[in-house]
């Protein structure tokens, strides 16, 4: 029983380490790496449910009786493409953020934003007082 579920549990560990990186790390590139790990692990999960003991790759041949399930393969092919699309877009955002904020650390960006807001508020209050 335990051995049968072992694979699943390892895959869950992988997914969670990806998710952990996304949430806990403040570096924007590291976050995207985390997303990648998370997604790739979900792919592993899908692919392992397609496996049939004693099966082979789902390419029809004469002397084979047992094939693994092709449908999850198709789904994951699509999902991989979606994954790289997200990564590319995320990375281009990182490049632009670096140019605009001079940093790719969450903390520093947040700080700059808050500061700007405070400054704006300050300027506004002055304006109001004058008016």
């Amino acid at each position: 029983m335990l051995m049968d579920l072992f694979n699943h549990w390892v895959v869950i560990t992988l997914m969670m380490s990806g998710l952990y990186i996304v949430i806990a790390h403040g570096n924007l590139i590291k976050k995207i790496v985390g997303l990648s790990v998370f997604q790739t692990s979900v792919f592993i999960f899908y692919i392992s449910m397609a496996k049939v003991d004693g099966g082979t790759a789902p390419i029809l041949a004469d002397d084979i009786v047992q094939y693994s399930n092709p449908l999850p393969h198709v789904l994951i092919l699509t999902a991989i493409v979606v994954g790289i699309a997200t990564t590319a877009l995320g990375l281009s955002l990182v490049v632009r953020i670096k140019e605009a904020y001079g940093s790719i650390e969450e903390e520093s960006i947040q700080q700059q934003d808050n500061q700007q807001q405070d400054n704006n508020a300050h300027a506004k209050r002055k304006q109001e007082e004058e008016a």
């Binding site: 997604q39 979900v42 449910m49 997200t86 990182v94 605009a100 904020y101």
Partner: peptide, 29 residues
């Protein structure tokens, strides 16, 4: 420039959400 940061945050949250949906669909499948 805040738009970039907002978009990045949305991308992270949105992708986590979509991946959760993907996991859920995988389980019911």
């Amino acid at each position: 420039r805040q738009a970039l940061w907002a978009s990045y945050q949305y991308l992270i949250m949105g992708t986590i959400g979509a991946t959760f949906i993907l996991i859920g669909i995988g389980l019911i499948y």
